[in-house]
Write a protein that binds this DNA or RNA. Structure first.
Lengths: 160, 160
DNA sequence: CTGTATCCTTAAAGATACTG
DNA sequence: CAGTATCTTTAAGGATACAG
C-alpha cells in the first residue's frame, strides 16, 4: 500500500477493487475463507500472520462487507458475504495465471464444489460469446473530468 | 507487502501470483499497459507515481517477464509479453467486481478491442461448461508436505 | 526523456505481553 | 480462543537533485 497516494481517487474500478481487497494478506484471507476456514485461529495458522494484523484485516474485510461475523461474538466465525463470494472469478483467474506462469511444482487443482469436476480456464468473452484477447476502455456516463481528459489525451496521442 | 513473510513460500498459486504482480502499483501499471501506455513518462503521468518507484516496478515487471523493453534503450517502450497479456482475465474479473461493488459513479466500460462489443461478465465453469458458484481445492501431484498436511487437517476438521 | 542516487517520512508488519 | 495494546523494526513510498 503506497504511503501517500490514495488509489481510490484514481476513478478506476481496478484501483477501487485493490483499495478494498488489494493487499496480500487480504486476498489470502479471502482465499482461505473460500477454502472453508472461518476461525481466527484457523486463518492464523494457515497464514502465519501476526495476531494484530489478522485482527485488523478481518475487521477491515467485515467493514467492507466482504466477510461477516457469525455465531457468538466471543468466538465468531468469519464467513464470506455475497460480495465476498463474487470475488471468486478474480481469485480463480489469478490462481490460474499463477499456476501457469509462476509454478514449477504442481499446485492444488481447482474443482467445482458441487460436481467435483475440474475447472475450465477462465475466459473473457463479449456478450455474444466471442472470445476476447484484447480489451479497450471507454469512459462511462459517470466518468469524472480527469478520466475523460485521460481518454481524449489517449486518442490524440494514438498518432505515436 | 508484508515486511517479513515471504509469501512465495506459501505453496499457493495465488500467493505466487501476488508475489509477482500483487502490489497496487504493479497491477495498475499492467492495466495501463493494456490501455496502450508504454512510455516511462506516460505511466508516470497516468499514475502520479514517484520516479524511483516506477523505475523499480518497471524493472521488476521486466525481470518477471510480464513486460518487455522495446525500441531504443535510451527511450524504451514497455510492452506486455504473452505472460503479461494473459493477466487479462484476472484484471477484467477484478475490474468487474470493482464495478459492481465499489463504484457509485459509472466507471469506464470494457469493450473488446477487436469488435468493440461490450464484455460479458467473467464466469467460472467446469470443463464441460457448467457454471460454478463454489470451488474447493485438491492438492496437486507436486504438492509439498505442508500443503498435503493442510488438506488432511482440513478433512479431519470438517466435523466442526 | 528516462532514469539513478539520496534522503526522509510514514506506515505496515512482527513480536510479545496482556485481557475477557 | 479471540482478540487488544505496545513497542520496535523495516521497508515502501515520496521528493528532489542530478546524470546520460
Amino acid at each position: 500500500m503506497p504511503g501517500k497516494t490514495d488509489l481510490s481517487t484514481l476513478n478506476c474500478s481496478l484501483a477501487r477493487a485493490l483499495a478494498a481487497a488489494g493487499d496480500w494478506w487480504t486476498l489470502l484471507i479471502v482465499r482461505d475463507a473460500f477454502l472453508g476456514l472461518s476461525r481466527f485461529g484457523e486463518f492464523r495458522e494457515s497464514l502465519g500472520i501476526a495476531r494484530n494484523i489478522l485482527a485488523d484485516r478481518l475487521a477491515a474485510l467485515t467493514a467492507e462487507g466482504i466477510l461477516r461475523q457469525e455465531g457468538t461474538p466471543r468466538r465468531p466465525r468469519y464467513r464470506l458475504t455475497r460480495k465476498g463470494r463474487e470475488m471468486m472469478p478474480a481469485l480463480v483467474a489469478l490462481m490460474q495465471w499463477g499456476d501457469k506462469w509462476q509454478s514449477e511444482g504442481r499446485p492444488p487443482m481447482l474443482l467445482s464444489d458441487e460436481s467435483g469436476e475440474a475447472l475450465a480456464k477462465v475466459r473473457v468473452t463479449t456478450r455474444r460469446g466471442k472470445e476476447v484477447s484484447a480489451v479497450r476502455f471507454r469512459p462511462g456516463p459517470g466518468a469524472n473530468p480527469r478520466t475523460k481528459e485521460f481518454f481524449e489525451r489517449r486518442a490524440r496521442n494514438a498518432e505515436r
